[in-house]
Design a binder for these strands. Sequence first.
RNA 1: GGCCCGUUGGUCAAACGGCUAAGACACGGCCCUUUCACGGCUGAGAUAAGGGUUCGAUUCCCUUACGGGUCACCA
Length: 480
Amino acid sequence: MQYRTRFAPSPTGYMHLGGLRTALYAYLFAKKNNGVFILRIEDTDRERQVEGTAEIIYETLAEVGLTYDEGPDVGGPYGPYVQSERMEIYREHAEMLVKRGHAYYCFCGKEELDEQRLIHHASRVSHKYNKHCANLSSEEITRKLSEGTPCVIRQNVPEEGKVFFNDCVYGRIEVEKNTLEDQIILKSDGFPTYNFANVVDDRLMGVTHVIRGNEFLSSTPKHVLLYEGFGWEPPVYIHVPTIMRTADKKLSKRDGDAYFGDFIAKGYLKEAIVNYIALLGWSPGGEKEKFSLAELVEAFDIEGISKSPAIFDIKKLDWLNGEYLRAMDGEEFHDKALPYIKEGVKRDIDTRMVAKLMKDRVERLTEIPEQLDFIDALPDYSLELYTHKKMKTNAESAGQMLAEIFPVLERLDDWRQEAIHETLMALVERLGCKNGQILWPLRVALSGKAQTPGGGIEIAVILGKGETLARISHALGKLK
RNA sequence: GGCCCGUUGGUCAAACGGCUAAGACACGGCCCUUUCACGGCUGAGAUAAGGGUUCGAUUCCCUUACGGGUCACCA
């Protein structure tokens, strides 16, 4: 049998990282087993719909490489893959369930039900619909229906007995049927509820393995009852733990840490994001941590999915992102970094050289501009920067050294890195001092900073001869 | 509150009855180095608590504590 999994988001917002990880696991599981991965859009709640968000889902999945074999925009043999286009199917199936005695029409008004819920809540009695309409006579039902009384269809849950299912992650889960409510499966507007639509669609689309967030764990017994009501075999369930921001808070829109797009904007690579979230709540077992999508497919195994929620650690993502950046070849990094270099530097510079210096020094592309801020304009700096214990320098010695450096560089016409290096090393030898004693003051004079990408020589190359000499004489003036 | 689920260092996690309880991130120290970073070495740091079962429990069972999910004409 061929395995079929699906990702079934509702188009209500941007692509959440938790959702993306669920999609990833469903994709990995399908591909690992040469199965089929399906995308289904669950748009049965018309009020929460957000225009254009289905497109974001398509785009994000395509961007990270989670290509689906069947879906709204690619078609497939079990379409349509958008729930709002399947209304007839749900109605037919709901009525089928009514005929089989596993569901019934309910004419209770929303207001009275809300009222009852409030009363129960206030008196701390656990609330459940009282099955009032389950006991209506067939004459009365026919009459109300013909009168056009607004109604819903509810699942008819037996009052005795137990239901159970075996979750691949959480094991056997068993509950008393009387703890389950007669939930609405078809709303008065004719739309199905999630709890009903997902069962019908998963069945009709041949889904063999349902991989979803564990917020659905407690409603799964109701789904199983629905399958049984139809006389269908339930799918295999694989519930995955939640991704948290802190131990008691989920990732959220407000904190700007929830959406895939947020992270791209913050300078993270899509490969690093996918790699990182794959490892949140799942472990491949070995010590390897850097995985391409293809390697994830190869390594994926539901055995490694954990039961407890995982806290999203941005520091570890930073590190992993840095690993991806460092592993890039020079050209690729240059291309990716170029927009950020241009953002930080307006002056005409050798971007390839700058990119090379930045490659091992950033974990996110967005760190680049601020690291280069000294290039366009020398910041105002304190003379204390010239004091470096290990280099044995201070403002006074720096002044002397810079005075030696200036004429030497002024005479140098070949402004390549090797030439400057040679020239300065020759100066070191002549003066009988340590490298740091001339290179440290040079760095400070050229950058006004204690920490720079590359040292004094590299900065001199980037700045060019004219600017280099200008900054040294500026320093000499300051040091007088 | 009812029902369900969870709990190994700060974080991700390995070990699925048998060792001095891996490894990674973060943190400290050292080395490398013209700074920072990278890289290398190294250090500190955990089985929530209490009962069982067992020759032996991180692992199996129970209780407690804490946390999460769910109880919608949301998904």
